[in-house]
Every structure is written in structure tokens, then in C-alpha cells.
Computed example of a mutant assay.
Amino acid sequence: MTGTGNPTGLVNGGLETGSLAPWTCQTGGAVVSTPAHGGTHALLAAATASQTGQCGQTVTLAPNTSYTLSGWVQGNYSYLGVSGGATASTWTPGSSSWTKLTVPFTTGASGTVTVYLHGWYGQGSVYGDDFSIA
């Protein structure tokens, strides 16, 4: 989902603007054209021996409400989750093909959470695409 006015607050979920914004990443994170799950761009989280490569975006949702974050990931030890006003995550040990991950969560009183994608120390970069919150 892209654009402003998105009822779920997530902006540039498909990375199709070709820009990282409003995502922020640790060193090496970027928007890449290969591999892409849908469209022509994906998010690269650059995990190294000293960092998970986390990329995240803060979104504001309705307070005390249940949602499901979903996204497509590729790479070893790909983690997708939310932190801040809710804490939930899931991961896959990885593969060279795209895997869909879903993370159910319930917002707290503020409704604000940070959506994130990251890999694991020393396991190489991971990719994410087509993120959405429903």
C-alpha cells in the first residue's frame, strides 16, 4: 500500500516510489530493483556480523485495535514485526524464494507502532516487499 491518507498508516509498503522514505534503515539498507516480489522495487535490510540491518517505519493506527501486518521476505533469518505500542514478530529460517509472513498484533493506548524488517547477525542481507496492515 502506498500514498498518504492510507487508513492503516503504512506508507510505501511496496517500495514502488523507488525511495526509502519513510522507511529508515541501519547502514547498508536501501531500495533495490532485484529481487522484487511485486512491482519493480523491494527493501534491502543489510545484516552484517555487527548489525541486524533493521529497517523500520513508524505508523499510527487506531488505539487498542487488532491488526495483521503482512509482508513478503527473502533471505536467511528474515524477521518481520512490530515494536513500540505493540510487540509481535515472526521469522523464517529463509530460502532463495519469497515467503509470506503475517504478524497479528493489538495496538496499545497510543496506537503508534514501528513496523520492522531485519535479518540476523552474520547471516547476510534479507529483502522485503509488499508490506501491508489490515
Rank of each mutant, 00 (worst) to 15 (best):
G29V: 07
T114G: 07
L117F: 10
D130W: 11
A46W: 00
N76K: 14
Y67N: 03
A86V: 08
T106N: 09
G122Y: 00
Q123F: 07
G81T: 09
P7V: 13
S95M: 01
T99L: 06
Y127P: 04
T40Q: 11
G84C: 05
Q123I: 03
A45E: 01
T102V: 14
V115T: 08
A49C: 09
P104N: 11
N64F: 06
G81L: 13
S97C: 00
T65H: 10
N12F: 12
W23R: 02
T87R: 10
G28K: 01
T24Q: 12
L10E: 09
T112G: 01
S97R: 01
E16S: 11
H118L: 08
Q51S: 03
T2Q: 15
L69A: 05
T102Q: 15
S50K: 00
G3N: 11
V11H: 11
W120A: 14
A30Y: 05
D129M: 09
T114V: 11
A42W: 02
Y116D: 02
T65Y: 08
L43P: 03
T48W: 00
S66D: 08
G56E: 08
H41K: 14
T114H: 08
M1L: 13
T60M: 01
L101N: 06
S132K: 12
T107L: 03
Q26F: 00
V32S: 11
E16G: 11
C55Y: 03
M1C: 15
P104D: 12
K100C: 03
V103T: 15
T112C: 06
S33I: 04
N76P: 05
A36T: 10
S78Y: 06
T99N: 05
W23T: 09
G29P: 01
L69G: 13
T4H: 12
T87V: 12
G108D: 09
C55R: 01
L69C: 04
T87Q: 09
G124M: 05
G56Q: 11
T102L: 09
G108I: 10
T68H: 02
A42I: 07
